[in-house]
Design a protein around this nucleic acid. Sequence first.
RNA 1: GCCCAAGUGGCGGAAUGGUAGACGCAGGGGAUUCAAAAUCCCCCGCUGGUGACAGCGUGCCGGUUCGAGUCCGGCCUUGGGUACCA
Length: 846
Amino acid sequence: MSRYNAAEIEARWQEAWEKAGIFTAERKEGKPKYYVLEMFPYPSGKLHMGHVRNYTMGDVIARYKLATGHNVLHPMGFDAFGMPAENAAMAIGGHPKTWTYNNIDDMVEQMKPLGLSLDWSRMFATCDPEYYGQQQALFLDFLDKGLVYRKNAVVNWDPVDMTVLANEQVEGGRGWRSGALVERKELTQWFFKISDMADELLGALDGLDNWPAKVKLMQANWIGKSRGLQFAFERADGGEPITVYTTRPDTLNGASFVGISPDHPIAKAMEGDAAVDAFLADARKGGTTEEAIETAEKLGFDTGIKVKHPLTGEELPVWIANFILMDYGTGAIFGCPAHDQRDLDFCRKYDLPVIDTFFALDDDTPVGKVAFVPAKSEKVRWVNHFAGLEEATGEEAINATIDFMEAKGLGEGVTKFRLRDWGLSRQRYWGCPIPVVHCEACGVVPEKKENLPVVLPDDVTFDVPGNPLDRHPTWRDVPCPSCGKAAKRETDTMDTFVDSSWYFARFTAPRAETPTNMEDAKYWMNVDQYIGGVEHAILHLLYARFFARAMQICGHLPESAKEPFDALFTQGMVTHAIYKTEGADGRPVYHYPEEVTLKDGKALLEDGREAEIVPSAKMSKSKNNVVNPLHIIEGYGADTARWFVLSDSPPERDVEWTASGAEAAHKHLGRVYRIASEIDAQATGSAADDTALLREMHKAIHDVTMGVESFGFNAAIAKLYGFTNALGKSKAGGAAKRQAAMVLAQLMSPMTPHLSEAVWEKLGGEGLCTLAPWPKADEAMLVDDEVILPIQINGKRRAEISVPKDMDKAEVEKLALAHEAVIKTLDGATPKKVIVVPGRIVNVVA
RNA sequence: GCCCAAGUGGCGGAAUGGUAGACGCAGGGGAUUCAAAAUCCCCCGCUGGUGACAGCGUGCCGGUUCGAGUCCGGCCUUGGGUACCA
């Protein structure tokens, strides 16, 4: 008997697959196509367990679809632009390009041993000029269709390094290198007009039946459609009225001030006054993230301007407030402190009045420190309401007020979206150059398509902060494509989200001379199954949905590909325990898993000290809890790694990597190999044993198929453990055992393809197990003749009876009531009710 | 702050509103062996009881239901996102 030798088996079958070319995708009519895609990786250089889990899940689907007769497209590439390459260049020298391409080579080296069914011939990186040149062509097409424009927007500005900072580079309101307090600064930047499609992007979510509900909900909330009232406050001094937008016009009686954004034209007009300038400088401190703005201390400045309440004529003060965003609504609001916590905090701080406009039905306590904000569906009691409301829900009140104000000609009902246009300009080198030229005479001039790609220059340095393209005269200075006079290239590059917003379309024709090839796009699109981390639930997926629409408008995708991902699955992270002790200086010391011995739930170091175990932490280099997939593959083989990342946790949840779990997975695979090896084809067994084994086999086919189709990989694997146990113990004859073992190999094949090929070959299977048609379950073999029904009395389980599976309700009820335990509990009384759920349960209500 | 999830034995987790704890890990007991490795078999939520059994038990509080881990309302904790990390 030979032992399971993963290294030998895996090398051999990977070579066999490659020789047969079975994963190279070509258009084939007459076979249903299936496009499975995992979110492509950033080439950090190190493959981690999260990647292994992501690609293994995709591979299970791809291999299952292959076995069920589909023409499968399963490509891989790299999302290769971005900050880490520039950071590496700054930290260790070298060039982002060298760093990136070396990392790509390393990662491909690390991925190949996993035995993924990938079509490597389609691979590309987004930093290939062949890719980003086509992206520049898309940009020019979008520009032509009015889908891109320029406007001012704020960025994080480091006043010491004189550079723009990414949100990630702002730590606690300070620049990560200089430590200077970050300011918000306006720059002219390029924007995609995604807000034009807000309503469509929202509405189309309804059709995405195979997307997780939570992702659709997050996107819907992000787009944030709201109906409100837009109206103007007349100024007491006769100046330009202040237009505000509110989603709660019903609380207009409770207005105690009007607030404007620090970027509002009125605020800007007041610049020059020392007190105003001091306040605005204060209000512009800190980063640009919504979190920073929302959690910052609320600051206000009384402009001295008064406005008239549109209904009462009462005067209200106008304040500049740092929490009001110019991007949303009109950049001006009225504050209603009684029913908005933020407004209340503001009014308490600056001693502005608080006016209750409604109370709960059974409580008329005035608002103190906590604003009264009931759900919009809850009925409340109104105080002297201007539209005549007495008792009504918030929703009813909003609609009634909008109608009232419209009838009076005081304002209009308006629909607004939270979604802002997508700013794509980045003041960085390692990205796709924006293909336009700034000419003094002609203004902004698009580069000619025949001059694409606008290639990044190689001769750049990162010894000073800022964008090296800005200080590269020979690259920057070019003649104007329109008039030919001296002009300057745009030195901003594109957001890396642009790169990842259309790569799925490029995979359908990765070497085409245009962004896509319509015939290939028509054949392969849509992505039938997209798989990636839930951290991309909003931005990446929304941008990709926008891009598919924009590409369709420009003729690069068919109408049918406007929603590019038919089904989406969001998977969890791979985590690992952290082993922590305290160093002499009191700071934590993190220990690598291989330095720790686990015994009785305790983590012991080599010197005998005990380390604290922090379970399920995200794998992170700084915490020393990273498990390198290569070590696992070298030690146990790729199939063990694949089996383990799928086995323990549901795919959408985080999985904790444990050494014992990997060991167990490996043992199990060895067991399967041994059981298959020991089958004696000549052995005979009883007909009953044969049938029993084949019943188990059909149940396994059914359950595993269901598991794979519904992303219940962990459940499918549990069934495979059960089926393996049944096969190991079975006294069935050799023929039945051989049949069962071959089906086992096939069912395991999506997860452990190498082992399956080895078992398949050993048992004399024809051709490759990978290509063998997926087995079908025989319905007749799935149901047992007898079922065991639990009997509950008042909801508590008291007994059970065994009955034929199709016995009718009355018969079952009679049997249940005749049961000893039931008679004893009822003690002569008649049951109030007996509920029989066929095949499930009997509940007797005493 | 706001939006979205998750929370079940010592651990990872299973369970179309219908027997809570499948399957695996760890632990305990046994078989095999000169011994070990490997392998195989049995036990394994908590409390009480020799035992049959009884009571309790799915983050916390409340509700709907014949019946709730599952549905509804309110909290707590952890994780993801928060528009320039990818």
